[in-house]
């Protein structure tokens, strides 16, 4: 499965498309890490627990999007976009969407 966030896949031709595919997930870290991150907030710097959380969420959203594309018979997704919202405090919500295509 090839993913791009541009219109095309260089070196290949899009022959068929299947419309939008999307994957979303919402994840949280346990309260201990939330408290530690709150403390880290005082001195600043990278909140590794939350970086990790966002990475996990992104990976899961992308893998769900890929699953959906696969079930439609696509072999690539072009113009992938990410979107996020703060639906719950302390939880990270990630949405990935793109256009499922078949390339040759």
């Amino acid at each position: 499965m090839i993913l791009t966030n541009i219109e095309t896949i260089p070196g290949k031709t899009i022959v068929e498309h299947f419309g939008l595919v999307s994957g979303n997930t919402i994840r949280a870290k346990h309260i201990g890490k939330d408290i530690l991150a709150g403390l880290k907030n005082i001195v600043g710097g990278e909140l590794t627990a939350y970086t990790e959380l966002l990475q996990e969420a992104r990976e899961e959203a992308v893998s769900r999007m890929k699953q959906q594309a696969q079930s439609l018979g696509a072999n690539a997704i072009v113009n992938v976009r990410f979107s996020t919202s703060s639906v719950a405090q302390g939880a990270s919500e990630l949405y990935a969407y793109g256009t499922a295509v078949r390339v040759e």
């Binding site: 899009i14 068929e16 299947f18 769900r64 699953q67 079930s71 018979g73």
Partner: peptide
Amino acid sequence: MVRYTPKLPEKNVNV
């Protein structure tokens, strides 16, 4: 125009 194949995913992977 790129050919469009209308198709719905069988199961909902997002839930």
